[in-house]
Nucleic acid binder design. Structure first.
Length: 570
RNA sequence: GCCCUCGUAGCUCAGUGGAUAGAGCGCCUGCCUCCGGAGCAGGAAGUCACAGGUUCGAAUCCUGUCGAGGGCACCA
């Protein structure tokens, strides 16, 4: 539709130039936009204002010259010049009706665009330490990353979802020591719990399972052997748990990448990925030695200060591993890499960008900073610390409010906006929750289709897709759809490809929830004013069923991109 | 001190340099003999934090001030 409107303007302007009414060396780029106020029409362009100077014309006169040549076109219902020189275009009912056919032909592929052009993009998100349950912020980033991946796929990208497992470092040791301490307690031993240890109840649970499976044989074992055994067991268990919880919200990763693997010598050359990457940076002249440590000269690439890669004691920093990890990503052939990080990591952005630039991949990294979630319960702040053990986990939240409501709430805010999530409120308001408003529109359409098929409106045995195929006539008289609520519904359906484009370009899934609510509202308004199933008017019924089913498809598609179910009955 | 994000209706928040700044919730008034009332229609409600600047035009871009949150390791 955008292209249609732009073409109409472009052709009219070219005709005006040919006729000598407008003197311009070449036809300028024509941009059309949705006017903010719908009473101004479907599309508007400022091309007359932009070109007025070059044409040495008053912008309104120029606009008139273009507008005159557009009126009368079968796709144009009205065109007018407004304000300082806007050209407002109202599309004809005929042009809008074509959208319905477009939707039904495309099915769940409606709104697909080719912005990505088949390029490969990796979205890395969540990437929690495998030492305990995820907090609510992880849930938000999971919803965000997964929905971004869905939108990018719809926009023509080949997408992979990746989870980076931080399974190396002191927090893993702390984790093992914590489990070991609980195990010894369960065995009745006197033991001092590690000062920095994790105190969550899940630690005791894991210890109890080990005790049940393997008995007390580890109580008198040598501590380092005990801890390394416990580490592997507990790690595997937590990882499986993370995967399970994420799957429960519909988030599945293609790759789980272990940080440890970066420190394992390759069988080919006996060198670790970290060492190989550091050698590469060294060769390119990005490093220097100072006070026994190896530094990355990141200030040369926009960072505030230089960063240590290899410490004076010979060990590598987390940053060094992260550079090796990113080198690996690009080695795997991604044209673009998107990382979703929590706001508490934003200080890390510049050095990572510097590192990616040093690797020769400047401009191929996008870091999205997801603001944190402040969790409340009845107005009272809930602390989120793994250490205290007193926290509402992401899993708890899913259990309480359900995956649909959780995902929808997480995505409704823009990414760079901190989110206050009150659990009690979310549950109390469930009937006013916008997710139900959208889902209800979908369920309502399904009820209409059941009704049209002669079934009970609540008959769950009816196959909606098959019913739609059987009932909706390809040659329905769509020209009958010309009332205001019908036109408004078709306009809203026509806007979907633009929404996908913006959501993909801005990496902003909140555009999708907004659109879903607008589309649902257009449908509810249509429903209130336009009776669909009318035995006395089979032509109108056929046309409206066609429109209703197109709406069903579009609603299911946008909800699919959000990652929320489209129920046939509620 | 430096860096990042934010400041828009009573509340929670949208807003792509464009026209009279929008939505939901809450509040007030109406609408089912009728395909699902988890719905629809209408009303009240604004110094876009503040001050400059850029330009035909700024909630939007730039600078500064004030306020809120987060971050500034040879930690991970």
């Amino acid at each position: 539709m955008r292209e249609l409107a732009a073409t109409l303007v472009r052709d009219a302007l070219a005709a005006a130039i040919d006729a000598g009414d407008v003197v311009l060396a070449d036809v300028p780029e024509v941009r059309v936009e949705h006017p903010r106020d719908p009473s101004h029409g479907d599309w508007a362009t400022n091309v007359a204002m932009v070109s007025a100077k070059a044409a040495a014309m008053n912008p309104r006169q120029l606009a008139e010259a273009v507008a005159t040549r557009m009126s009368g076109h079968p796709d144009v219902a009205a065109v007018e010049v407004a304000g300082p020189g806007f050209i407002n275009i109202r599309l004809s009912a005929n042009a809008l009706q074509r959208v319905l056919t477009e939707v039904r032909l495309a099915g769940s592929g409606y709104g697909r665009i080719d912005e990505g052009g088949g390029r490969r993009v990796q979205v890395e998100f969540v990437s929690a330490n495998p030492v305990g349950p995820m907090h609510v912020g992880h849930g938000r980033w999971a919803a965000l990353g997964d929905s971004m991946a869905r939108v990018l796929a719809h926009a023509g990208w080949l997408v992979e979802r990746e989870f980076y497992i931080n399974d190396q470092g002191v927090q893993m040791d702390t984790f093992a020591k914590s489990v070991a301490a609980r195990y010894l307690e369960l065995c009745g031993r006197e033991v001092e719990f590690p000062e920095e240890g994790y105190r969550g109840a899940y630690i005791t649970e894991i210890a109890r399972e080990i005790l049940q499976d393997e008995g007390e044989k580890w109580a008198d074992a040598e501590p380092s052997g005990r801890e390394s055994h416990f580490l592997e067991r507990a790690y595997a268990q937590v990882l499986a748990h993370l995967e399970h919880v994420l799957h429960g919200m519909g988030v599945d990763f293609d790759v789980w990448f272990s940080e440890r693997s970066l420190h394992v010598a390759s069988s080919a050359d006996g060198v670790t990925a970290v060492e190989r990457t550091l050698a590469r940076l060294k060769e390119a002249g990005h490093t220097y030695e100072h006070e026994g440590a190896l530094w990355f000269r990141s200030t040369a690439l926009g960072d505030d200060k230089d960063r240590v890669l290899k410490k004076a004691d010979g060990s590598y920093t987390y940053f060094a591993a992260d550079i090796a990890y990113h080198a690996d990503k690009y080695d795997r052939g991604f044209d673009r890499v998107i990382n979703i990080w929590g706001a508490d990591h934003h200080g890390y952005v510049k050095r990572m960008e510097a590192a990616v630039a040093a690797l020769g991949h400047e401009g191929k990294l996008t870091i999205v900073i997801g603001q944190l979630v402040n969790l409340f319960r009845a107005g009272e702040v809930v602390r989120m610390s793994k250490r205290t053990g007193e926290m509402v986990t992401f899993e708890d939240l899913l259990d309480e409010v359900g995956p649909d409501a959780a995902r929808y709430f997480f995505l409704r805010r823009s990414t760079d906006q901190a989110l206050d999530f009150d659990i009690v409120l979310a549950k109390e308001q469930s009937s006013d929750n916008p997710v139900y408003y959208v889902q209800y529109a979908h369920a309502r359409i399904c009820a209409i289709l059941r009704k049209a098929a002669g079934a009970d409106t609540a008959d769950t045995s009816v196959d909606i897709a098959a019913t739609a195929t059987a009932l909706v006539a390809g040659d329905a008289p769509l020209h009958l759809l010309a009332s205001e609520p019908e036109l408004a519904l078709m306009r809203k359906l026509a806007a979907f490809p633009d929404v996908v484009e913006v959501a993909a370009r801005q990496l902003a899934p909140n555009k999708l929830t907004r659109y879903a609510e607008e589309l649902a509202a257009s449908f509810h308004q249509f429903y209130t004013q336009c009776r669909v199933v009318d035995p006395d008017d089979t032509d109108l019924t056929a046309a409206r069923l066609y429109a209703v089913d197109a709406t069903r498809i579009a609603l299911a598609t946008v909800l699919g991109l959000v990652g929320v179910s489209a129920p046939e009955r509620m």
